[in-house]
C-alpha cells in the first residue's frame, strides 16, 4: 500500500519523459496509406542512396533512409506528401487494412 499522505510529496512539477506514439498509433488517423512501387522507386531501382524525397519531406519521420525506403504505417498519418513529392510517381495512396 502506498502511503498517500507521504506520496503527494513525490508529485512535484508536471514533467515528461520521451515515448514513442505520444498521441497513440497515429496510423489509424487515415485509411489511405502510401505504397511504394519498387519498380519505379529510384533508390530501389538503382540500388544507390539517391533521391529519398519521401524521407526528406515526411513531416512525421516515418520513412526510413534505406534501400528500399520503408514506411512505418503504424504512425503514418497518410498526408500524402510523399506521393506528391516522389519525382517518378512511385508512391500511391491506397486503402491499407491496419491492425
Amino acid at each position: 500500500m502506498t502511503d498517500l499522505k507521504k506520496d503527494y510529496q513525490k508529485i512535484l512539477a508536471s514533467v515528461q519523459k520521451p515515448v514513442i506514439g505520444e498521441a497513440g498509433k497515429t496510423g489509424t488517423w487515415s485509411r489511405l496509406k502510401p505504397v511504394i512501387d519498387l519498380e519505379k522507386c529510384i533508390p530501389a531501382k538503382s540500388g544507390k542512396f539517391i533521391c529519398f524525397n519521401c524521407w526528406l519531406y515526411c513531416p512525421e519521420a516515418v520513412v526510413s533512409r534505406e534501400i528500399p525506403p520503408k514506411i512505418n504505417l503504424e504512425y503514418c498519418k497518410g498526408c500524402g506528401i510523399c506521393m506528391e513529392e516522389c519525382p517518378v510517381n512511385a508512391i500511391s495512396m491506397e486503402e491499407v487494412k491496419f491492425e
Binding site: A13, S14, V15, Q16, K17, P18
Partner: peptide, 9 residues
Amino acid sequence: QVKGVGPVT
C-alpha cells in the same frame, strides 16, 4: 536526462 517541464495537463 531528457525531460519536458510544464506541459499541457
